[in-house]
Design a protein around this nucleic acid. Structure first.
Lengths: 115, 115
DNA sequence: GGAATGGTCAACCAGACGGTTGAATAATGC
DNA sequence: GCATTATTCAACCGTCTGGTTGACCATTCC
């Protein structure tokens, strides 16, 4: 029969492979957000974003907490650890260089606007 | 029209999201291998492995070099850097703990045999 | 030259994925 | 109570993905 339960790493990497979802994660880096607020900058339906958030939650990259009628999304940075450790085995990358990260974000943001 | 060229990060994370491909990468950690040798431990066709290798190459995670009639596959650990940097932005993980990695590999190997 | 070896290509298939729309649920505001 | 707001659910659709098989190069070996 064999639909082997997907490994946690499968879920994490698959979740990260979508640019929309990565962008959501960087947004959540700033602050926790309600689903509608997450959806706002995107040109897709709320339902689509809702699904993306489910994928991120299933991968353990965010946590969603419903309070009243709004659902708060908060980053769970620890969720990335497993993947980070796995990748670390392929060579010790420099102690995380935040300037590098900054450059990446800038580059990606250009992508977002060049729509 | 809009089939925006996939970001490099898209390719890397997507490539890493498949357990077969991750396993191939860990195999290549040991040594360079010919395509058939890579395929040997798997229960799928050579063609399937060949495709997996193409995906890894497209993502820049391995390089393939044809010499004579055999195609050598070698890990390109630098290919993971972009992804590593991106993830690093979400919290500085401990300076890569190779024991952690070891444990992951052992766990995954158990998965492989528990087929 | 001809057979065997190493690998890719092409066509195909089932299932997952990313998106849509419209209806449904649930809490809030008046 | 009723309209509004916030979010999810369900069905659907086209495309991508991971696998198969069989034909097709190349290269090596005798």
């Amino acid at each position: 029969m064999h639909t082997p339960v997907p490994d946690r790493l499968d879920l994490i990497f698959a979740a990260l492979s979508d640019p929309t979802r990565r962008r959501v994660l960087t947004m959540l880096l700033e602050d926790d957000m309600a689903v509608s607020d997450v959806a706002e900058p995107f040109q897709m339906s709320l339902a689509a974003i809702s699904k993306h958030l489910s994928v991120l939650a299933a991968a353990g990259l965010i946590r969603q907490e419903r309070r009243g009628r709004i659902t708060w999304c908060k980053l769970d940075p620890d969720g990335m650890r497993a993947a980070s450790v796995w990748m670390g085995g392929f060579g010790q990358f420099d102690p995380v260089d935040l300037d590098d990260f900054e450059r990446f974000l800038v580059a990606e943001m250009q992508d977002w606007t060049r729509e």
